[in-house]
Amino acid sequence: MTTPVQMMAQHPALHEWLRAKKSFPHLWCPGCGIGTIMGAATRALTSMQYSKDEVVVISGIGCTGRIPAYLDCNTLHTTHGRALTFATGVKFSRPKLKVLVFMGDGDGLAIGGNHFIHTCRRNIDITAVIVNNYIYGMTGGQASPTLPEGMKASTAPYGSMEPPFDACNLAIAAGATFVARSTVYHMKEMEKLIQKGMEHKGFSVIEIVAQCPTSFGRMNKLGNPIDMLEYQKTHAIKYYPGMDIEAAKAEGKDIITGVLKDENTKMEYCEKYDELIIKKALASEKEKTK
């Protein structure tokens, strides 16, 4: 296994992407999964050789929402749940920019749920990474819409009674054209999936199951961060077309990873606007002057 230090050596460009002097040390707890996700996303950005000037990293509010401040590109930390609306404005007004969004599960699926499904529906070329730690990390571990039934949170002391959302199923149903899932444990896969998502033309959603040892882990007695990573390792199963997901879940493989949807037939929003709307509008103008 490669260590983080070796990995850094393999990616000298990575350092350039961090605002090492300006915004570190970071605020995440020891053992938190978010830093690993930021690392994977940054490696994906460097592998694609994007220039730092053309990338815009946008987030909502939460522990996850703090990612952009650490990255040396155009960065925007918005309001709780609404990162995708700002992202839509940035991308639609200047389609050349590459837009990467980070959202927490509460951020993206509770308060931002409506923005999420509508961004899926529009298929605008934005990549959204949903960091799913099953709770509201920043505010102290309250229940989020992905909290599994029976699991505890600071506002669900007797265990949750609500059925959770499956972020990927929601994205697929709402029309996102690239949907994938990975975990913090599967660092390499996660990096590849974020890269695929960014290379995909259209709205891509990558859910990353992440450990929050401080709240979710502690309240549900899931052990230390290593134990939580071990859980991600042993409970994950890679998706393949035709897979019997229910059967896998019954066997305890409840984290279905890999690419769940990759569709390239639907036109991207900004291109469609240029192709359809602007062309028709210009034609109507010509018609008038005839």
């Binding site: 815009v56 918005t78 609306t85 839509t88 404005g89 940035v90 007004s93 200047r94 920019l97 409506n114």
Partner: peptide, 19 residues
Amino acid sequence: MEDEIASLGAVIGASLAGA
């Protein structure tokens, strides 16, 4: 957009991109 919160969010994003 899907609502007015989203509308102003998009407006702010666009403005930051120079619009």
